[in-house]
Write a protein that binds this DNA or RNA. Structure first.
Lengths: 146, 146
DNA sequence: TATTGTTATACTCTATAACTATA
DNA sequence: TATAGTTATAGAGTATAACAATA
C-alpha cells in the first residue's frame, strides 16, 4: 500500500465545536504549562490562587463551585498548597463546619509572579487575535459555560 | 462572619482564554456524555470512529496524530474498540510493522447511530449561537489548535 | 435532617521510557 | 539506525459514596 502523504481527513469532526474546543484547550494549556510549570503552577492551581486572592476567607465548598471542581477534589489540592505554605485554613468560630481560606504572604508572592507570567503567556497565546477578536471569542465561549 | 451571598469574584481569570476554554469544554463534553454515553461513545471514541470511517486502512500512528494522542495511548483504546467488535487491525503485507485499521460492519452501524446523536447534540449545544456566530467561533478556535 | 469538610476509593485519560520486530 | 506497535508504569485529574462533626 502506498504511504499516505496527505494528512487524514477529519470528516464530520470539523463541524463539532467540542473537537475544536479540545484542540484549542490542548494548545493553550500546553503553552501555560511551559510558562508557569517551572514555578509549580498549573491552570487549576492558578485559578485557585486567583479566587483566593479575590475572596479572602471564602469556604472550601464555595471555592470548589467557583472553579468548577467537586468539594472532595478541593481537599487534596488545598492539602498540597498548604504544605507548600501558600494557603491557610482557618476554622470558623461561628460555624465550626466551615474553613475560611487565605493566601499566606508566600501565596501572595507566588501569585504575583504567576500573574506576571500568566499575563505574558496570555499575550503570546493570543497574539493570533486582535483585541476585538479576543473579546468576541470570550463572549462566544461564555454562551456555553457561563 | 456573614455568609457570602454573592458569587465569588473570579478576578483576572475572566481575562484568560484558557479559563473560558475549560468552562466551555466542560459544559460541551458533559452534554455530549449525556447524549452518547448510553451507547458507550465518548468524545475521544467518536473522533476515532470518524477518522477511521474517513480514512480506511490508516495506521495507528497516523490515527494518533490525527486525534492528537500519543501512539501509546492509541493501543488500549483500539484494544477496547476491538473487543467491542467495532474496529479491525490488519497487519500490512508490505511493511509488517504497520497495522491497517478498519471499521467493521458493527463499527459503521454504531458510527451511524453516534453521528445522528452527535448531530442532535451539536444542534442543542449550539442553540445559543447563530450559524454565523458558530462559524466565527470555530475559525477563532482554529487559530490556536489548527 | 442538611451541610462542611474529610476519607477511601476508583476510574479515566494521558504520557514517558523501554522493548520487539521489522525496515 | 530509524520506525510501528506494544508494554509497563506512573501521574494528573476527577468523581462517588460514606463518615464525623456541626448546625
Amino acid at each position: 500500500m502506498a504511504p499516505q502523504r496527505k494528512p487524514p481527513s477529519l470528516g464530520c469532526l470539523t463541524d463539532h465545536v467540542g473537537f475544536h474546543l479540545r484542540l484549542a484547550q490542548l494548545a493553550v494549556f500546553k503553552h501555560f504549562e511551559s510558562a508557569l510549570g517551572e514555578i509549580g503552577v498549573s491552570p487549576a492551581i492558578y485559578s485557585v490562587l486567583e479566587v483566593l486572592h479575590d475572596n479572602p476567607g471564602i469556604t472550601q465548598s464555595k471555592l470548589a463551585i467557583a472553579v468548577r471542581l467537586d468539594r472532595s477534589s478541593m481537599v487534596p489540592m488545598l492539602d498540597k498548597l498548604g504544605k507548600r505554605g501558600l494557603v491557610e485554613r482557618q476554622a470558623s468560630t461561628t460555624d465550626r463546619r466551615h474553613n475560611h481560606l487565605f493566601l499566606t504572604k508566600e501565596g501572595e508572592a507566588l501569585l504575583a509572579d504567576a500573574r506576571a507570567r500568566a499575563s505574558a503567556h496570555e499575550k503570546q497565546v493570543c497574539s493570533c487575535l486582535s483585541a476585538e477578536e479576543k473579546k468576541n471569542l470570550l463572549a462566544l465561549l461564555d454562551r456555553f459555560g457561563g
